[in-house]
């Protein structure tokens, strides 16, 4: 993705689109036309702008967000304390595993935080054991016990 960490230049119409469309996209035959009308835009202008916003990476996607756990799958946050001189090599191990959805370096003794997502509950523990075997490091699991909020209400 092109300069994925650089702020994009958005005009007022882009901002209104991003702010208005973070949920509630209508389930009707001409949904973009319905949204465009609400925003005072033409359907083809809304489509063209959504195309630009997704192509430039301002939106990572436009569409349904699925909850993997409702499919019988499992998701867990996990963390490791990785020695600095092995950091890139350990990151490469996780990068090669399709079960790892996200991985972030964070400033803390537990300096690698990642999300394990698998098709079955047993898959989480299996992935944990694979990582531990490959790296010799302890993987702490932080599965959610309760969700108080998850969503996006980002102001563009």
């Amino acid at each position: 993705m092109r300069s994925a960490r650089e702020p994009a230049v958005l005009d007022d119409i882009d901002r209104r689109i991003v702010n208005a469309l973070q949920g509630g996209f209508p389930l009707v035959p001409r949904p973009y036309a319905a949204v465009a009308e609400r925003l005072g835009l033409a359907e083809d202008e809304l489509l063209a702008r959504l195309d630009t916003l997704t192509a430039s990476g301002v939106l990572s996607r436009f569409g349904p967000m699925f909850d993997a756990e409702r499919f019988g799958g499992a998701v867990s946050l996990a963390a490791m304390a990785v020695p600095v001189d092995r950091f890139d090599a350990v990151a490469a191990v996780l990068d090669a595993m399709p079960e790892i959805a996200h991985n972030y370096e964070r400033r803390h003794p537990l300096n690698m935080w990642f999300v394990i997502a698998t098709e079955t509950r047993a898959g989480i523990g299996a992935a944990q054991r694979v990582i531990e075997a490959k790296t010799g490091l302890k993987v702490l699991l932080f599965p959610k016990i309760r969700e108080y909020f998850v969503g996006m209400r980002v102001e563009a």
Binding site: A8, Q22, V58, P64, D67, V154
Partner: peptide, 20 residues
């Protein structure tokens, strides 16, 4: 699927970094 929570929502998924 939306009603059952399989779909959390339908819409734009912004990239925080690109929004500054």
């Amino acid at each position: 699927m939306l009603e059952a929570g399989v779909v959390r929502r339908i819409g734009a998924v912004p990239n925080h970094y690109r929004l500054g």
